[in-house]
Design a protein around this nucleic acid. Structure first.
Lengths: 363, 363
DNA sequence: CTGTTAGCGCTTTCAC
DNA sequence: GTGAAAGCGCTAACAG
């Protein structure tokens, strides 16, 4: 058994005092070669005499040597890691994205550092900067910070790619789900079903993705779809709470900022005796947990290949770090998944009791 | 506007060529002080003349200087980060844990590096080692690797704490949900409702947490509860698929490895006309998304304060890294949440077709 | 209080 | 093919 240096007794030192780590010098000494040779065999940087290779390898094994990542990083001028900043880890949206980012990064020999801003736009710049300090590149997911802060970061000259936020005029590689297109699909679907007035449970104010959805509603007005925007949020609970006010607003369908909100809305509506989709259609966004959460199989939603988004984002960052960036924003298309929570509006649209037959009463 | 060094023209260099980063030396030069002084004002390591402080600070701002993390790490002998290894990021279980780990780590000035093993026990040791190379301490969440591999890692003398896996004889700080206690609560609940035979949709073979649950079932046998173990897995889809076979097995209740599996089972059972909880009780584990997923509000489950688990785990690691470790395993208690998917068994318990009148017809 | 001087552990020219 | 030596950017004694 290789004796760990610094502790002569066999008892595992569990003290705070750090036992001296094995360094490349130790390996060199043990193998009777220079540190450069050790480095060379470990990195395959140059041809080395097979005999020496053997000696080095066995010394490495003997001593249990592991290169110090910080030292490598300093010497190589590369951290070997990329950073990812997300607003909220508990949103099922991100793990999927993270998963593929992580896979791509690994395939390029990089680790992934994750930070979460807790949906607080003000904390983002600092976190992002911190990521830049210790990573070769960073992915900003759905950043909520304002334009100027964002601009500021991009000017640092550090590899950076924006995910789910496209800022016109920013020459930073960006990639996003096509929320506008996705919501347009949703609006079209509802319109064709016969809905004329829908409530939109709106996401975080600072969310660009939310703004994109709103833009789609504006356009949908031309097709006769009237959208009532209800401030809500991004969690199921917020959807649950906001949904309570919907039936009174004369809407026959509710579109939610995301699936979580939609699920919350469904729960609230059903609890108050509203049948879905008979009395009210509910449509989500994101298609959370494709093949994992059976509950979500029922929700009509705008679906996004999150793995694809993550993969492309990571790939784009890698490209940026190595050969240089492509500035053209990339949109990942969304698809409409018609499932069980959307249907034509009820024959008697809900109207305030005072209204004469046939006239719209929207205030 | 501070001119970035290396690019004389104003155009933001987006090339692959790394522009020379501003170093502490540059700052020292600009402020007319030594690098040590710069270091001191930046770290608050010692008192510095207010005038110099001012000069340093403005030089820092002017130049847009950010300390290089690798260099700091090397010089300080500390990476300023902790690593977390989880089997599967998409499991809603982990984001919550990660969230609080992340918060605690931050409060101690450390970043968090996340890696995922994709439920592949064989990949874990390498990932864990990699984390050790670049982090001051690591958290192994629900490690699937075998005892020896685990033992091997703990012997490296690198701060390490085990989460959701207690290995007797390992003097490594460990912390876990009390799965045994949780499942015991579940068994007691079912028994008191009158159930005598339940099916257990079993989790990953290599999961210690699953083994703990099984241990609870063994004990429950003494109370007359007969548990039929059905190999399943950890995803909703696997729960969906495994649930199909349950009604034939004469069980009046199914206990699932986790809530995801339970949700899958509920979906499958309902689809095949089984009423829940009237015909069949379904109980989960983990209490996924406490206040976020309304769907889960309906599931009777063994609940765990995941944030607490994460917090304590991170705190324990921090303690280990600074003052030394406490080797006594810590168990976080679980609570039974009785909701809408558990009830007394149907009056006519399903029995094989040979039974006298009142027989169930399940094939 | 401040500057000088050594390294931290590794990679990488540059000679041999 | 291999070793010696310089240096990545920062911190931390150590003198003044």
């Amino acid at each position: 058994m290789p004796e760990s240096p610094g502790s002569t007794s066999g008892s595992p030192a569990r003290k705070g005092a750090r036992q001296r780590r094995v360094t490349i010098t130790d390996v060199g000494a043990a193998a009777g070669v220079s540190t450069s040779t050790v480095s060379r065999v470990l990195n395959g940087t140059a041809r080395v005499d097979p005999e020496l290779v053997r000696r080095v390898q066995s010394a490495v094994a003997e001593l249990g040597y592991r290169p110090n990542a910080a030292a490598q990083g300093l010497a190589r001028g590369e951290a070997g890691a990329i950073g990812v900043l997300v607003p909220d880890l508990s949103n099922p949206y991100f793990p999927d994205v993270l998963k593929s980012i992580s896979a791509v990064a690994r395939s390029h020999g990089r680790r992934v550092m994750v930070m979460e801003s807790d949906e607080d736009p003000a904390s983002e710049p600092e976190l992002a900067e911190d990521l830049m300090r210790c990573c070769d590149g960073v992915l900003l997911c759905s950043p909520r910070m304002d334009r100027t802060a964002l601009l500021d970061l991009t000017l640092r000259g550090h590899p950076l790619v924006l995910v789910n936020r496209i800022v016109p005029g920013l020459s930073t590689p960006s990639i996003s789900a096509d929320f506008y297109g996705g919501m347009t699909l949703v609006c079209g679907h509802l319109t064709q079903l016969g809905h004329r007035r829908v409530a939109y449970l709106s996401g975080p104010e600072s969310s660009w993705a939310n703004a994109e959805r709103l833009r789609a509603f504006d356009a949908a007005a031309a097709f006769g779809l009237d959208v009532d925007v209800v401030p809500c949020g991004h969690t199921a609970r917020q959807g649950y709470e906001a949904a309570g006010t919907v039936p009174d607003r004369g809407a026959t369908a509710v579109v939610a900022y995301n699936d979580l909100v939609a699920l919350g809305a469904v729960a609230a509506l059903e609890e108050s005796g509203v049948r879905i989709p008979d009395d009210m259609s509910v449509i989500g966004c994101d298609d959370i947990s494709l093949d994992d959460l059976p509950a979500s199989r029922r929700l009509t939603t705008a679906s996004l290949a999150r793995h694809e988004l993550g993969r492309q984002a990571a790939q784009r960052l890698e490209t940026l770090m190595t050969v240089g960036g492509d500035t053209e924003p990339l949109y990942i298309p969304m698809e409409l998944r018609v499932r069980h929570t959307s249907a034509p509006p009820a024959l008697r649209p809900s109207r305030p009791a005072t209204a004469p037959p046939g006239l719209s009463t929207a205030d």
